[in-house]
Structure formats: structure tokens, C-alpha cells
Design a protein around this nucleic acid. Sequence first.
DNA 1: TCAATAATTAATCAGGCGATTGATTAATAC
DNA 2: GTATTAATCAATCGCCTGATTAATTATTGA
Lengths: 246, 246
Amino acid sequence: MSKVRTRRQSASAAAPQRARLVARRTKPGRPPKNSADPALRERILDVAEAQFSRHGYDAVSTRAVARAVGATPAMIHYYFNSKRELFDAVFARRADVINTERMAALDAYAARAGANVTVEGAIAAFLRPALAKFAEGEGWRNYLTLVAQVGNKHEWGGEVMTRSFDPVIQRLIAIIRKALPGASDVNLYWAYHFLSGALLLTLSETDRIDRLSAGLCRSVDIPSIEPRMVEFAAAGFRRVCGAAPG
Amino acid sequence: MSKVRTRRQSASAAAPQRARLVARRTKPGRPPKNSADPALRERILDVAEAQFSRHGYDAVSTRAVARAVGATPAMIHYYFNSKRELFDAVFARRADVINTERMAALDAYAARAGANVTVEGAIAAFLRPALAKFAEGEGWRNYLTLVAQVGNKHEWGGEVMTRSFDPVIQRLIAIIRKALPGASDVNLYWAYHFLSGALLLTLSETDRIDRLSAGLCRSVDIPSIEPRMVEFAAAGFRRVCGAAPG
DNA sequence: TCAATAATTAATCAGGCGATTGATTAATAC
DNA sequence: GTATTAATCAATCGCCTGATTAATTATTGA
């Protein structure tokens, strides 16, 4: 990691302007090895992930991330080069993990079920890794909330999602296609689209359903959600794709 | 509309700084009546709606809105008081229209169907106004995209949605409850949540499905979407709410 | 030992932001 | 005809933003 760049130096330099309000931790220079704080890079990713997921990309400033992590803005420029690259790093960090897991779950299901694949089984295999991670802890919950937010965003949201998740989705559809012979691709894609919307809204953690149901349903209650989402989507797939109901 | 506020005046005033790059339209002062541009207020709402829906609240500056509309930032302060109030005005402008229409459609359906209400009928009545408006033209499309974006947003997104749309949703659920006697509220609310996610993603106009399906499905193709979404959701409701399939 | 390199801070740059004021001009009300 | 009110612009305030540099310090490797 080295930076070379040449440019002018202002040379004005008047007014040293000290008077620091909140105690900065160290003096300039590389910190001694036992001054704690290993893996600052990772901590930056953690708080960026949390802030992006809570407030959205545009509402988060790199300075706010730096402040929350107890570092200077320059450290973010040092490890990542720009705000956008910081975001991409956040997004990429967990993408491989979950993609690998999902693909493995789908493959395992397809192998296990053989010719007896069902829509329910395929959808469950597709959803379980994501929902399990969501339930697992704060880091993954923040990440998936972020994914959900990006999924509904214009600009570069679409590309990012496509690049990251399309292969797994195509695998899911291929398996469902075997369970619903005769289903047209158009119908399969639309049905997946609806499932995707249901999943994204569920992961997005607005307290929408909590309010709507006056507390009867809780948006973080994965054990309640998973079987219902599987059944809802499977029934929808069957109907839209023209299979006999039941 | 009057403004009273007292504060200091800087009195520095040096450097008049002219040299305007893009020709400003008029001199200061109220424009003469036939100088075109009636209803500037409405035009501000239009471009704010378009920009908010395309880039999201945080990525849009009031200055950018002013620029696009050919006015000064002060005009936005004049008609609306702050960025947030501008947003609220955008959101509120069409909310009543669509809410009234949706509620009327649900009432009409309930009256028409009497004791023979079906899940399909209720969902169709709920969806049709929104999807029809979406297909109708750019203004409504922008608005509904904005709604979808807000629906997946944290911060104040949840409240805004709740305040605007809960009554209609409760009416929908009440009708479906009649079509599915014995369904528990928990199941009804979760099923609605999934339907809501499918709708929001569809309205959000990311070109997600277009890419995924390699152009086979088009996200703006309402005539294709409507019957499929109705069937998908109705089948899901039946299944989750424990009715016999079919 | 000493040069290279890694990790940090302070300071700054140029520009954008939301908001507000005061002056200015036309329309309207009395 | 004059006072009030409506609608506009130019100018600015104070603050925040992303990005970058130079200096500084510790570690590492030859």
C-alpha cells in the first residue's frame, strides 16, 4: 500500500488552531504494536455497514464513519480510496460467503431430491441461508438490510444486485423448472420477482408489519417468517406457472 | 404567505460578482402576469417528485431542484419552508387521490360481491388503482416509485407509509378475512406483508427483472404484471391462511 | 544499523449544502 | 392613487462534504 502523487503545497499555514474538544487518541505516526486496535480496516467496514444499512448510502458521510470508528477521515482514504469503494468493499465482504452457502444449499437439495424436487424444497433451500444469517447476529442483519435497501435503489443498485446474485437465482429457477414442467420462463421470472420483493421487504427491517399488525407480528421473528414465506411463494409459483393447485 | 424574521445583516458586501453563465430569466421582482410560467409551485413539485424518485431523498439537493425548474433556491424556501417539507408536499399531493380511489374500489368490490367475496377479487381491487396509475403516465410512475423507495427506507420511511396507507390496508385485510373464514390475524398480516413486498419491488422500477430475464420480462409491462401478481398473492394467501388449496 | 515501508494525524482544498435576508417589482385592495 | 401583499432574484451565512497532502512515528527487512 503506497501512494505517490505530486501537487503543490499551499505554504500559507498561519494559525495552528489547536483546542481539540474530544480527546484524540494518539499523536501522528504509526502506533506501537501493543496499542490495541488491530484490524482497524475491519472495524471501518463494520461501522460503515451499520451506518449504510441504517441511513442509506447518501446520508452517511465518510467523516461520520471515521468519527464513529475513532479515526481520522484520512484513514478511510488510506484503506479504501473513496466513499464508493468503501461501499463496494462493505458489499463484497459478505457476498461471497452467502452466495457460496446458497449455491451449496441448492445443489444439496437438488442432489437429495433427485427427480422428486418440489417448489417448496427449492424455495426453502434458497431462503434458509439468508434468513439464518439474518437471525444470526447484528453484522449479518445489517448487511442483509443493506442488500435489501440497495435492491430497491435506482442508480447503480440494479447492477450491484445483478452482478452479485444472479447466478444463484438462475440456479433456483432451474430447479423449480424441474418441479413445474411446462412452466414458461416468463412466468417463472415473474414469480421469482414477487418472491424477491417479499424477501427484500422482510429483510429491510422497516418496522412496517409491526406497526400495521399493532405488534402482533414482529419483523425480526425469523422462525415465524420462514415457513410462511416458503408456503406463500410456493403456492404463488404453482398458480402463476399453471400447475394444478395442490 | 408572509415571512417575518429578524437577524443581522453582514454589511461586508464587497465584490458584486456578476458574470452569470447561464442566462437567468428575469430581474428581481414579481413577474408580469403574461410572462408565462404559471403555477411554478406545481412545477417545483413535479421536478422534485422526479428527482426524489430517481435518486432518493438524500441525493437530491434543493438547489438541483431549483436549477432544473429554472428558479432560485429562495423560491423553494418561499413555497415550502424546508427540504423536508418539500418532500412531504410531494408525498401528500397524490396520496389522497390514490387512497380515495383504492378505498372506493375495495368498497365497490365488497358491495358487488356480497357474501361471495374471493381473495382474488379483493386483491385485484386493491392493486388495480395503483397499477393503473403507474401505467398512466410519468407523474404517477415517479410518485409510485418514490413510495416504493420510501417503503424500504428506515428513518422516517415507516411512519410516512403507516400514516398514509394503513387504513386502506386494513380494509383489504377485513375483506380477505371474510373470504377466508378461520384465518388468523397473524397469518393474514404476514401474507399481506409478502404481497406488499412484491408490489413495492415491482413499482420501484429498478430494471432488476429485465436484466435477470435477459429482456424476457419488462418491469413496466403492467398488463403482464397485474394478473400474475393477483394470482400469485391470492394463492399465497390461501395457503398461508390455511384454506384448502384451489 | 539503516533504508524502506506501513500506519497514523493535522491541516487543508475546493466545492456543495440548506437556509435566510433584503431589495425589487408587479398585482391587488382600499 | 396609494398601501399592502405576492412573487421574484442576488447574495450570503455557516457548516459539511469527499478528497488529498505533508509530516510523523513505528515496524520490518537487508
